[in-house]
Amino acid sequence: MEVVAPYFSFWLKGAALTLGLSAASFPISAFLGLIVAFAAVSPSRPAALAAAMYINLFRGLPEIIVIFLIFYGSNIVLTMLAQPFGIQIGGTNPAIAALIALSIQFGSYAAVIFKDWMGVFPRGYTEAGLAIGMTRLQIRRRIVVPLLLRSATPALGNLFLVMLKISALASLIGVEELSRTTSIIAGSTREPLVCYLIAAGMYLVISAVSGFVQHRFEVAMERSI
């Protein structure tokens, strides 16, 4: 235990990045999910088809593959783009690659959640808006989206907890979040057991705190209705 103690601030930095990565990706995912869900239920065939393809693609792709694909893929694309200009590019920033990968992947999960809720969205609320002459866009913005966000809050909260754990995979492309810092500390102290136990504990704390915040949020939400 005393061997790993000096690394504690390094560890906390990793934990902060874990939280930060998810906190940054999640709103993007939710936004993407909303758009895709609206496309999925839209009367436009191409839009619905594109949404269904996106949802089914990421329903099947393991997150670890998406992270690697975005990381290596963007590297190759960037290099190809830069080649004609003779510019040397240092490669994709791993944190940004992870951010993009998580956002896209979880965007599809969020889309499924929103789509399910849209399926049971009371038609009367929409019709009440139509009846007073609101436009479809106004109804979406002022009525559907707020109510959807409210009903989806528990599912979205769970999704955030999933994202916190999945974000550990960002360590595999070199993002120095909690898992990565743990591996580094485990390597230099030669105490992998202790280090990974501590990391597990940290993840549990992060999850518990997030879960608690989520619970308070849900309660507050319920009160406000």
Binding site: G124, E127, A131, I143, P146, L147, S224
Partner: peptide
């Protein structure tokens, strides 16, 4: 103007 059987007030 329209008034519905089930009110359809927006709960939020």
């Amino acid at each position: 103007g329209m008034v519905f059987q089930s009110f359809n007030l927006w709960p939020h």
